[in-house]
Computed example of a mutant assay.
Amino acid sequence: MTDRTAHARVHMAASVLLSYPDERLAEALPLLNAVVAELGPGEPARRLAAFLGHVATTPPADLAEHYVATFDLKRRCCPYLTYYTYGDTRRRGMALLRFQQAYRAAGFDVTGELPDHLGVVCELSGRGATEQAVRLLREHRAGIETLLRALREEGSPYAEVVAAVLATLPPPTERERQAALRLAEEGPPAEEVGLDPYGPNAPSLGGRR
């Protein structure tokens, strides 16, 4: 299995696991476990296996409650990547358009969710556009690392899924390291002006359903 194929499988598994944990997750568990087992040794597989172990031993109602409490109610655990760079500013709307254009160029349509959701970007990779997805992930690596830090501080098992995604990326460049440090120190911009440039009916922040 090539690295690209392995990374695409890690990303597809992460996409499913970053969705709201309803009956579809329960139905997908056998396939997810098989995919992770086929990945062999390595950090991404180990991280995903840890989360799958948590899912296997946690009642579905508790999984759903934790998902909502983490991703819907804690802004610091926001799964929308452009939020970390632009906050709720008009510049974020333009960044969302860039994500949408990248998906369209890859022949991938996003419906019912903002295109910068980490799970949606991972799905793009899992469906074959791994190069485009990895480029988006690297451009927003500082946000992903900030999300991972927040999940770990909250003691959330979802940190394992985000860590698995990060483990598929090349080592950070100096520029990426500096961006992560700045974001950790300053946080996202706080201007509250909505997402008008993206469209009047853009979904608000909240968990992926």
Score class of each variant (00 low, 15 high):
T2N: 15
D3V: 09
D3M: 08
A6N: 07
M12L: 15
Y20S: 00
A26E: 11
A28Y: 06
P30G: 08
N33H: 15
L39M: 06
L39N: 05
G42M: 07
G42P: 12
R47I: 05
G53D: 13
T58G: 11
L63R: 12
Y67G: 07
A69S: 12
Y86V: 02
R90Y: 14
L96R: 04
R98K: 14
Q101L: 13
R104Q: 14
D109A: 14
V110E: 05
G112P: 07
G112M: 07
E113V: 09
P115F: 03
H117Y: 15
L118W: 03
V121Q: 02
C122A: 11
A129T: 00
E131S: 04
A133V: 00
R138I: 02
R141G: 11
A142I: 05
L147G: 03
L148R: 09
R149F: 02
V162I: 10
V162D: 04
A163K: 06
V165R: 01
L166N: 07
P170Y: 08
R175T: 13
R175H: 13
A180H: 06
A184G: 09
A184C: 01
P188W: 02
A190R: 15
E192A: 14
E192G: 03
V193A: 08
G194D: 02
L195Q: 09
G207W: 01
R208D: 12
R209K: 08
